[in-house]
Design a protein around this nucleic acid. Structure first.
Lengths: 250, 250
DNA sequence: AATTGGATCTCGACA
DNA sequence: TGTCGAGGTCCAATT
């Protein structure tokens, strides 16, 4: 079989043929159609008739895209199961997710294009500039924080949450670092404050340092009010980039 | 012109024709191709050769989907600008975003399908079960929180953040509500605590109540430690669903 | 399975 | 434009 099959303005039989082939052959199914969409699950939504691009992946991911925005207007996450029904002569795609129970139904009122694509892909994204790489850099160059800083733990679970980096300063004080790869906001300060307060329950002197390329105005205000500190650090962009994720440092 | 044009295994000229038509005619461009992807901007990534679905929307949104996951492996947000170049006989799609400066390049090594779709869509999603609807419900039925509760402000900006609902209890104490449409976590408790502490700087007695369908174990622990409260409330699902967003209550 | 927090988060609202 | 917080967030990692 060929890698791609596509039929414009398919007959009922052609449409069902493409859908069944795609679902059974682990291919990507793409449909251009006028459709209505019904969703019920964590929330509930209705979308009236209009033209959309529908994409169903072999892993069960189900996307419905309007002609605007990066986000699908409706979707189902990977692991969902697709079935096809016919109601009053209209083909309906139905995707069900168990746990949480969610149902997505697409009424295909008019199909302009039905296609399948047996995509072969053995590559994964290699990304640099993440928070994980900031942490790595700080472990290698602790003086980026301050002279005498010694990082001790990464992703350390404490009483109320998980600290990015836990270490000690020159004078032996416990130091909590909260890293952000982008401009840090009020959220980030609250997070740091939560860690510092949890550790202060057990330790005499605890410093909290927010490590980020910049701060929002509100974050700066709150940080100062709380006696927390800030170090300006940019997430590094490597030349040779690593694939997948690297959470643990050692 | 017809609503859909699709060419399988297009020639160089056919491919360029479809791309140019789609970009100039405000149509959705969909390409099935073996490609390489390069991204540099807020972060930086490389993706080796493989089969993907490429979707370019008239608003500039640019999505590259592998055969797994709900999320695109690479993308560009709406407002980005697409151009086409040819390098060593290979067609390259280039999308540029200004502010922040981000560049996405897709080398089309082999194109299996090129298509355009002039999607007409005048409908927008009508969704129910949001946090905004929880707030509305509480304003109409304040006793869902407790007898004598009087909600006064919605989305009230205070010193360090924006409070969901600010009101007073039967005894005249200031009460901060933090609403979550789903199970509340540590993050939600930190948020509530931040608001309560900001208000306590100005007011004598301030209570903080987390309003959500449930709590994570960690959230419960921290909430109790901090002397904050919890009310179990489910986000309501309406029958007749409203379109778009309704942030302001009045 | 539940918890926690990152993300090129995206998106909308508001000052 | 920057700030702020929601989201059917998704997703990975750890317990």
């Amino acid at each position: 079989m060929s890698k791609v099959e596509a039929v414009t303005n398919p007959s009922r039989e052609e449409l069902l043929g493409i859908i069944d082939s795609a679902l059974s052959k682990e291919a990507m199914l793409t449909i251009f159609a006028r459709c209505k969409v019904h969703y019920d699950g964590r929330a509930k939504s209705e979308l009236g008739s209009g033209d959309r691009v529908i994409l169903v992946k072999p892993d069960g991911a189900f996307l419905i895209h309007q002609s605007k925005k990066r986000e699908p207007v409706n979707w189902q996450p990977p692991g969902s199961f697709v079935t096809v029904e016919e109601r009053d002569g209209i083909i309906v795609l139905r995707s069900v997710r168990r746990k949480p129970k969610e149902i997505l139904e697409v009424e295909l009122e008019e199909v302009y294009l039905a296609s399948l694509f047996k995509a072969e892909d053995y590559e994964e994204l290699a990304l640099t500039g993440s928070e994980a790489e900031m942490a790595e850099m700080i472990f290698k160059n602790p003086e980026l924080i301050e002279p005498g800083f010694r990082p001790l733990f990464r992703e350390k679970s404490i009483g109320h949450g998980i600290v990015d980096i836990l270490g000690r300063d020159r004078e032996g004080n416990l130091v909590v670092l909260e890293l952000k790869r982008r401009r840090a906001d009020l959220h980030a300060v609250s997070q740091l404050k939560r860690y510092v307060e949890a550790l202060r329950a057990e330790h005499p002197a605890v410093r909290g340092i927010l490590v980020a390329p910049s701060l929002t105005s509100g974050a700066k205000k709150l940080l100062e009010k709380e006696g927390l500190e800030f170090r300006r650090v940019q997430p590094p962009k490597r030349e040779s980039v690593t694939k997948g994720r690297q959470t643990t440092l050692f």
